[in-house]
Design a protein around this nucleic acid. Sequence first.
DNA 1: TATTGTTATACTCTATAACTATA
DNA 2: TATAGTTATAGAGTATAACAATA
Lengths: 143, 143
Amino acid sequence: MDYFPQLVAERPDIALCRASTAVARAAEQAAAANGVAVGSQLVLKMLAAVGPCSQQVLSQGLRVDRSMMVGIVDELEAAGWARRERDPADRRAYAVTITPSGRKVMTKSERTVPAFLDETFTALSAGERSQLTKLLGKLLLSE
Amino acid sequence: MDYFPQLVAERPDIALCRASTAVARAAEQAAAANGVAVGSQLVLKMLAAVGPCSQQVLSQGLRVDRSMMVGIVDELEAAGWARRERDPADRRAYAVTITPSGRKVMTKSERTVPAFLDETFTALSAGERSQLTKLLGKLLLSE
DNA sequence: TATTGTTATACTCTATAACTATA
DNA sequence: TATAGTTATAGAGTATAACAATA
C-alpha cells in the first residue's frame, strides 16, 4: 500500500504521471455522470467559446489527434449536440457547429466542474490549487 | 498550434494530463538513452534502496500492477541486472535481488536524472520545481 | 503539391480473470 | 481460504500511414 517514498520526492516526472492517471479517472467518472465523455465536453466548451470551426482547429486547440476527433464529432452529432456543416470558404473542411441542445448539455456539465475539482484536489488549499494551475500552465506553454 | 487557453486556465485536471504525457515521453527517451526502461530503472532504484523484496512489494511501492511487474523483472533478469531468488520464509514469493551489474546501471542512469529534469522542467525555476514536487506529493499521498 | 476528413493498422497500457503453488 | 507469481484476453489511447476530395 505504501509508496516507495523517493519516487515522489526525487522524480517530479513520475509524480506527475501518477497524479495524472488518478485525476483522469476521476474526471472521466465525473463527466460520465453527466452523460458526456471528457473529450466531448471539451469540444463543446471550445465550440461555445470560439464558434463554429473545423475538426482540424478543434484537434489542435485541444491537443487531440485529428483522427480521434472524427469519433468525438461523430458522437456529438449522434447525440444531436453538434452538426457538421460545410465551410463555404473551404469545402474540404467542416464547420462544426454546436446546437442549442449541445449548449444546454455543456452548460449543465460545466456547472459540475467546480465541485469535481474541489473533490479531486481536496488535499490542496485554494491557494495551492491555483499555484498548481499556474505551474502546469507554464510547463505546458513551454512545450 | 495554439492551445485553447481556457483549457489550461480552468481545468487543472486536463492540464495535469497534458503535462503528464509530454513529460512521460521525455522520461522514456531519457531512460532509453541509458539502455533502460523507466519501469526497470525505478525497480532497480527501489531494490537498491530497500534490499531484496517480492514482486508484490515492488508493484505496490511503485504503483504498477503485479501482472506487469512480471515482465519488468523478466527484463531485469535477462539483462543480468536482477535475480529471482527464493524467499526461504515464504516459498510462494521471490526475493528479487539486484546484481552488482544492476547496481552499476542504476547508478549510471541515476546520474543522468538531474540533467533530464533540468531540461524537461526548464520552464520552471528551481523554486517552482520544488513547489510543484511538493504539491504533487500532497495530491498523491491523499489518494 | 498540400490539406481536410476518414479509415485501418499496430502498439502500448491498463484491467480483469483465471490458473499453480504455496501458505 | 487467501496470497504470490504467471498467463491470457480485452479495452482504451496513441501513432502512423494511406486514401478521396478539395485547395
